[in-house]
C-alpha cells in the first residue's frame, strides 16, 4: 500500500512539473503531505559562508530572481539561476518566480530596457555555478541539499522546496 501511495505521489509530482502548472508554496506543502515518507530531497537556497544574514521573504526572493535590485545588509545581491537539471529549472519557474519561461524572459528583458536591471545569469553547468558562487560574497543561488552538503564554503539560508528527485 505504501509502495502504491509513493508511486502515485511520484506520478502526481512529475506530471505537475511536466505540465508546468503554477505550483505555489501552499501547493507544495499539500504535495509534501500527500507524498508523506516519499520526501527524499530538498532544494535549498544558499550563499557563501561569509554572506550577510539574509531575511528573504518569498516576495523579495521573487524580486531578486526577476532581476530587480534587492539589498542584503550592505550590498546588492546577485541572483545565480541554477538550470543544471530539468527539475531545478522547473522548480525555479514554478516556485521561485512563479511564471512561465516565456513570461520570465519577456519580463526580465523589458526591465532591462526600461530600468537597466540586469537579467539574472543562468548556469547550465553546476561546477561553473559553484566556482562563481564561491567567488561572490553577494551571490545567492539554490541547489539540491545533497550538493550543498558537499561544498564546504557554503551556507544554507533556508529550504526552498521539498520533493522527490526525479533524476535526469
Amino acid at each position: 500500500m505504501n509502495y502504491l501511495r509513493t508511486c502515485l505521489a511520484k506520478m502526481y509530482l512529475i506530471s505537475s512539473l511536466i505540465l508546468g502548472g503554477n505550483q505555489t508554496f501552499a501547493d507544495q506543502r499539500h504535495t509534501n503531505e500527500i507524498i508523506g515518507e516519499a520526501v527524499k530531497e530538498n532544494i535549498v537556497l544558499v550563499c557563501v559562508k561569509e554572506c550577510d544574514d539574509l531575511m528573504l521573504s518569498p516576495m523579495r526572493l521573487r524580486k531578486l530572481f526577476l532581476g530587480m535590485p534587492v539589498q542584503g545588509k550592505r550590498h546588492y545581491l546577485k541572483p545565480l539561476v541554477n538550470v543544471s537539471d530539468q527539475q531545478l529549472e522547473n522548480v525555479f519557474y514554478q516556485s521561485v518566480v512563479a511564471m512561465s519561461r516565456k513570461s520570465f524572459q519577456a519580463k526580465t528583458l523589458m526591465q532591462q530596457l526600461r530600468f537597466a536591471f540586469a537579467v539574472p545569469k543562468q548556469f547550465e553547468d553546476q561546477s561553473v555555478l559553484f566556482t562563481e558562487l564561491e567567488k561572490l560574497p553577494t551571490g545567492v543561488t539554490y541547489m539540491w541539499q545533497r550538493d550543498a552538503d558537499k561544498i564546504k564554503n557554503i551556507r544554507v539560508i533556508r529550504t526552498l522546496w521539498q520533493g522527490v528527485y526525479a533524476g535526469n
Binding site: 546577485k78 528583458l109 530596457l113 540586469a118 560574497p137 553577494t138
Partner: peptide, 14 residues
C-alpha cells in the same frame, strides 16, 4: 568591488 570579474555590460537588439 565585491565582484571577482568586471561586468562589461550587455547589448540587446530590438
Amino acid at each position: 568591488e565585491l565582484s571577482p570579474t568586471i561586468d562589461w555590460g550587455h547589448v540587446s537588439l530590438f
